[in-house]
């Protein structure tokens, strides 16, 4: 009896939801805005799909309908990746503790 690989992926998916659930509950409420911007950045890992769409085709022309959508998605995801991580970095750099000497 062969197991459908879909079941493996579904298991990963369900377990990740649980991991996400517990990890996110442990995020301190004061960092909820950086949480949103960083989840934004990491969900742009969808760029891997865009890269496959634009590079993996074996046709001779660089731009065909499928690859154009891939390239467009690359631009969008790149804005998000750089923007998301950098703005998170910028926000996190602002969180400082009280100076001890006061």
């Amino acid at each position: 009896m062969e197991l459908d690989p879909f079941i493996f992926r579904l298991s990963i998916f369900i377990l990740s939801i649980f991991v996400g659930y517990y990890v996110v509950w442990s995020v301190t409420p004061s960092l909820h805005t950086p949480l949103m911007s960083v989840t934004n950045a990491i969900s742009s890992v969808i760029i891997v799909g865009a890269i496959i769409a634009s590079l993996a085709g074996n046709s001779n022309e660089v731009f065909n309908t499928a690859s154009i959508f891939g390239y467009l998605a690359i631009i969008l995801a790149a804005v998000n990746i750089f923007g998301g991580f950098l703005v998170t970095q910028r926000m996190l750099a602002m969180y400082k503790k009280k100076k001890k000497d006061k």
């Binding site: 990963i12 998916f13 990740s16 996400g20 996110v24 989840t39 990491i42 969900s43 799909g49």
Partner: peptide, 12 residues
């Protein structure tokens, strides 16, 4: 990578 991330972001 996408499945894990999607699940994380979705539940977050």
């Amino acid at each position: 990578a996408l499945i894990i991330t999607g699940a994380l972001v979705g539940s977050s």
